[in-house]
Design a protein around this nucleic acid. Structure first.
Length: 195
DNA sequence: CAGTTGATTCGCT
DNA sequence: GCGAATCAACTGG
């Protein structure tokens, strides 16, 4: 079993953490997903971030310790999972957008539905959360602790030649021009990454 | 206290 | 490819 990534891993600039999370694995409730697509959010001053206007009850976790899990509810039906990054107090986080189920596929399938194609099991932030069984009750959980039910571990060394970056998805609103924040990271050629 | 807005997915066509 | 579904949190009055 690979080693759980330490708090120091997350206590770095969010862009570095996002890039290094590609290829890493996240395990919860007997399902393991290898991350293929993530998005960086800088927090304070980032118009695309929930933490843009500072701490609120909803975003309190974002301003907590790096390595915290921020799970939020959106569109009235979906959960999305983020990992809080450094520097602490900035509200920075990495959204887990997509991944490939590498272990516990039957369990993931039972949560996502039998007619779901294998590549779609964790393709998309909400699908990924469902596949892993992550909901609001996991909000605020520290994934660096030894006894944490959620384990994030380094995967096979990421092939740097396959790392791509581009504008973030779904960021709209004033100042939310995607080109100004090209902070989406993905692994080229992965079927689990949306086009 | 009421109005607005999403870091989306699913099911049809 | 497109539109509906659905609700918690934030915002402004």
């Amino acid at each position: 079993m690979p080693l759980c990534l330490p708090a120091a891993f997350y206590d770095r600039p969010v862009l570095d953490v996002a890039a290094d999370l590609l290829g890493a694995t996240i395990t919860h409730a007997r399902v393991t997903v290898r991350l293929t697509e993530v998005e960086a959010y800088a927090g304070l001053g980032d118009p695309g971030s929930h933490a843009f206007r500072g701490p609120t009850r909803r975003t309190a976790v974002l301003f907590g310790q790096p390595g915290g899990l921020y799970v939020y509810f959106t569109y009235g039906m979906h959960w999305c999972a983020n990992l809080v990054c450094g520097p602490a107090g900035q509200g920075a986080a990495v959204l887990l957008r997509a991944g490939e189920v590498v272990d516990g596929e039957p369990m993931a399938r039972s949560r996502r539905g039998d007619r779901c194609r294998p590549r779609d099991l964790a393709r998309g932030p909400a699908r990924l959360a469902v596949a892993l069984g992550l909901t609001g009750e996991h909000n605020g959980l520290l994934v660096t602790g030894a006894g944490s039910p959620v384990v994030v571990a380094a995967g096979a060394p990421a092939d740097a030649a396959r790392v791509r970056t581009g504008p973030r998805v779904g960021v709209s609103g004033a100042g939310g021009d995607g080109a100004a924040y090209p902070w989406r990271f993905w692994l080229d050629g992965e079927p689990s990454v949306s086009p």
